[in-house]
């Protein structure tokens, strides 16, 4: 286990590169999760509670899309964001923003499917009751959303974990540029090849740590929400 001691030193001394990369990874994936939540949660709720034709089909589609590999999304966004692609004028390729967009697309199906399942399992009586008490359709849906907050938070944390742990998107649209788009996974994958094994180990430990801390936080928030 060459480099383990050095890795420990890097973490303990708060190596600047290490902190920089960790902070960027959390920011980028956190932003991607929040962005994806903006459309995925309403979509998931309407898929779970709505009664319209093609609902089952749509749910099936989102379930299937959960399996799309990250590199496929990476390639798609590379082609879209490339200067010769349709959104090339925005000059977003090889920026953190490009990773945010790619990751938010990657986790959308996960979030939609999990949210849909979560709200479906809430007792239908609650929505009916809210409607009887004079709530509008939206307010009634929000009540259901509130009732299933625990499951929703779990869906969000699962999505964040997927985003921060993925490599394909970050590599293809980020490019692993020093000081700009290096995130935990790209560094672990590429820099160990350059001999930076201690850094790789340290970042792996941090990645595991983040996932652990996020889940702990979500647990605490869940407890708080459910009173």
């Amino acid at each position: 286990m060459q480099g383990l001691g050095e890795a420990f030193m890097l973490i303990m001394t708060g190596d600047r590169v290490l902190i920089d990369i960790t902070f960027r990874a959390i920011t980028v994936s956190g932003l991607a999760t929040i962005l994806a939540s903006c459309w995925s949660i309403p979509l998931g709720v309407s898929l779970g509670l709505g009664r319209f034709r093609g609902r089952q089909l749509l749910k099936g589609v989102f379930n299937a899309l959960m399996g799309v590999p990250a590199v496929a999304i990476g390639l798609l966004f590379y082609l879209i964001l490339s200067r010769s692609g349709p959104l090339g004028g925005l000059q977003l390729l090889y920026t953190p923003a490009a990773i945010v967009l790619g990751q938010s697309a990657l986790i959308t199906p996960i979030l939609v499917s999990l949210v849909a399942v979560t709200v479906e399992t809430v007792d239908p009586e609650i929505k009916r009751l809210a409607l009887t008490l004079g709530a509008s359709e939206t307010a009634a849906n929000l009540t259901v959303l509130g009732e299933s907050m625990g499951g929703i938070l779990l869906s969000i944390s699962a999505s964040f974990n997927r985003a921060i742990a993925e490599l394909g998107v970050a590599l293809m649209v980020g490019g692993n540029i020093r000081g700009a788009t290096r995130v935990l996974t790209t560094v672990i994958a590429l820099e160990t090849g350059r001999g930076a094994i201690p850094l790789g180990i340290a970042l792996t430990v941090i990645l595991l740590g983040i996932v652990g801390v996020v889940n702990a936080l979500i647990y605490i928030v869940q407890r708080w929400v459910q009173g």
Binding site: L129, T143, L145, G146, M149, V225
Partner: peptide, 20 residues
């Protein structure tokens, strides 16, 4: 009872959305 609890959670939901 359910109504009260429901509205409290609704409030929490709004707080979370705003903070986020």
């Amino acid at each position: 009872h359910i109504g009260l609890k429901g509205s409290m959670r609704l409030k929490n939901t709004y707080t979370i959305i705003a903070a986020t």
